Computed example of a mutant assay.
Amino acid sequence: MNIQWYPGHMTRAKRKLEEQLAWVDIVMELGDARLPLSSRNPLLKQLLGNKLRLLLLNKSDLADKKRIDQWLVKLGKEGPVLAISSMTNVGVKKIVPLLEELMTDKRERLAARGVRGRPIRVMVVGIPNIGKSTLINQLTGGSQAKTGNKPGVTRGNQWIRIHDKVELLDTPGMLWPKFDDPEVGRKLAVTGAVRDEVFDQEELAQWLLAWLKQNYPLELQSFYKLGENETDLEGIGRRRGCLVSGGRIDTFKAAQIFLREFRSGKIAKVTMD
């Protein structure tokens, strides 16, 4: 299965991002803690250049803590990184102090030119459905940004004031034109960054089942209360009552349920990279 998804609004988002980079002090990049590498847009490295950057691995409540701790050490060698959960608010209070720390040298340069008291201007970037809007709502204490449980909710850039210290520029979720590694596309699809309509959900569910059997077999069997040889779409469909006429299993419906339960972290806390 070769999954690709790059709708027209992402081309416009890339162009807009390039135009607005000059306005911001820091870029706050959101990645998925389940995909510390696969969820990071490779175009950003080229686009951002030497711009100050803070990497936030969101959805840490859905990730394998041991693996995430290892990734934090590795990625921390490249620059500041923090594991957070915009849904549970874990780590969110550390963000503004980190932004202020990153901004120290630039503030001194601005002060030397007579510019004092200006809020830190932060651009928020990331792939679709990564939780940018939910994070902004946590930071502002309200519903300043639109949220949704599907990719592509934010279509236009908008400035949002957190408080007197920080202004955020929200941007639409952006993928890249081609996933060179097919497995990256599959990982992005199973975690919800790609619209379900653009791929075969049964085929993807079969791939995810095989991946979980190899990496988290006990958690998978325990959740569905199925033996090793019974843990397939038929077995899951039987457990979830996905029956059609003649007592057959609706494997498409079983695949949809399986993907939904995986994405919510019910089956296991996983890190796929």
Rank of each mutant, 00 (worst) to 15 (best):
G156Q: 15
E219T: 01
K178E: 13
P182L: 11
V194Q: 13
R195Y: 03
V122S: 03
K106L: 15
G142P: 04
G114Q: 11
L209R: 07
T147G: 12
L102Q: 12
I136C: 02
W207E: 07
Q214W: 06
G126R: 00
E167F: 05
E202T: 14
I162N: 01
K165D: 05
T147E: 13
V184G: 00
R113V: 12
R118K: 10
L110E: 15
D180V: 11
G152A: 02
S143G: 13
E219C: 01
E101D: 14
Y216I: 02
E197A: 12
A189P: 04
K146W: 05
G173C: 01
G131E: 03
E197R: 14
K178Y: 13
V153R: 02
P172N: 03
E197H: 10
R161F: 01
V190I: 14
R155V: 08
G142I: 06
V122Y: 00
I130D: 01
G141N: 10
Q206H: 14
L102R: 04
A189T: 06
L110M: 15
L175H: 04
G156F: 15
G141S: 10
G131F: 01
D180P: 08
A205R: 04
I136V: 09
G114D: 11
P182E: 11
L102S: 04
P182F: 09
L102K: 06
T147M: 11
